[in-house]
């Protein structure tokens, strides 16, 4: 694991109070609720949570690709290298997408267009953002494929996605992601559909690319095992909100929120005894039917009075760089933080 970047001033992506809602048949649903995080140059921020926790919708909101008209960003700011993306015109935004900020999507089987060759799909990004055509474009495509260590790129450019293996396809998606030298890459579960050895190789590749180009990576996953290998800092999301955020060492050594502890506890360990993994009771919340106040209260092992459960917990910086959502019972459980929280 390479060291995390030290400078505080290197923030390239600064998401503030992002809130995104969807109109569904059950009414308005808040999929992302007041989420803020920063990513620095050369840093990987892991965003972890169950499906439906809002981690992917946050990413789509940053890219302004929330499916409309159902979904809508209702508040917040997204500063990319100092510019608020939410204030850009559609045309300006489409120049930013794939240029300054790019995305690596989850399923390489689905993420590539089946009717275009690898070369056409990688070339499209470069053509859009660098205006290259013809021979220089072809050279740049091969260069991009080389960057993601695709063997014999001169031949691969003429292949269609269905002629490549899953790992190769994911590399092509990666090549599209980095081909126009972005400052931020959002990787949405990039390794979920790959088998373990290919996954490890791909993660290594991402880290190498990060070192070479100083990429800031937002790494979305539900797998804490991958987080440990990949990320400098971690934000844990639940029901559209960040419940805990800290550097990766703190998250593993001193998790404070019950939900974080449960997620870490459910990673299989080679050295553990016993035959059952610990599990978190209850179901992930339904966003259209969120309990008012503390969404996690129904699954908590702590005792919540109805009044406690009705209080919306604040995200509090309990030590430097370590943010936790503190509910009243959890504060009582670790008394020494209580002076930092005040409930009205």
């Amino acid at each position: 694991m390479h060291p995390p970047p030290s400078s505080q001033s290197d923030v390239v992506l600064d998401v503030r109070n992002m809130t995104t809602e969807f109109t569904t048949k059950w009414g308005r649903v808040r999929a992302v609720d007041d989420v803020s995080y920063q990513v620095r140059r050369g840093e990987t921020l892991g965003v972890v949570g169950e499906s439906g926790s809002g981690k992917s919708v946050t990413a789509l909101s940053i890219m302004r690709l929330v499916p409309s008209p159902a979904g809508r960003i209702v508040g917040g700011e997204v500063f990319l290298n100092g510019r608020d993306l939410l204030k850009l015109s559609d045309k300006e935004m489409s120049k930013v997408r794939g240029g300054e900020i790019s995305m690596i999507l989850q399923d390489p089987m689905q993420a590539l267009n089946p009717v275009f060759t690898v070369g056409q799909q990688v070339g499209e990004t470069i053509r859009i953002h660098e205006g290259l055509r013809g021979r220089p474009l072809a050279d740049k495509v091969i260069e991009a494929l080389k960057k993601v260590r695709i063997p014999a790129p001169e031949r691969r450019v003429k292949d269609y996605p269905h002629q490549l293996s899953g790992g190769m396809r994911q590399r092509v998606v990666g090549a599209i992601g980095i081909s126009s030298s972005p400052s931020v890459v959002i990787a949405d579960e990039p390794t979920t559909s790959l088998d373990v050895t290919i996954q490890a190789a791909y993660l290594r590749l991402l880290r190498q690319l990060q070192d070479e180009y100083g990429l800031a990576i937002v790494f979305i996953t539900h797998d804490f095992g991958v987080v440990a290998k990949m990320c400098h800092r971690v934000a844990v999301m639940y029901a559209g909100r960040i419940v805990e955020m800290a550097d990766v060492r703190t998250i593993f050594n001193n998790p404070l929120h019950e939900y974080t502890k449960a997620l870490i506890g459910s990673v299989p360990r080679m050295d553990a005894d016993g035959d059952r993994l610990p599990q978190l009771d209850g179901q992930p919340p339904l966003l259209h039917d969120l309990p008012a106040g503390d969404a996690f209260a129904p699954r908590s092992k702590l005792e919540f009075s109805p009044e406690d459960a009705g209080v919306r917990p604040e995200l509090v910086e309990v030590e430097e760089g370590h943010w936790v959502q503190l509910s009243r019972p959890s504060v009582a459980a670790f008394d020494h933080y209580s002076h930092m929280v005040s409930y009205g």
């Binding site: 995305m103 993420a111 590539l112 267009n113 275009f116």
Partner: peptide, 26 residues
């Protein structure tokens, strides 16, 4: 509705090409 359309949008492809190039041919 497919993933490759999301990816095409994330690449910065304009709406006209999304519809007539990426989606229509498929």
């Amino acid at each position: 509705d497919s993933q490759y359309i999301v990816l095409a949008r994330a690449k910065g492809v304009n709406e006209r090409d999304i519809v007539f190039k990426h989606a229509l041919r498929n």
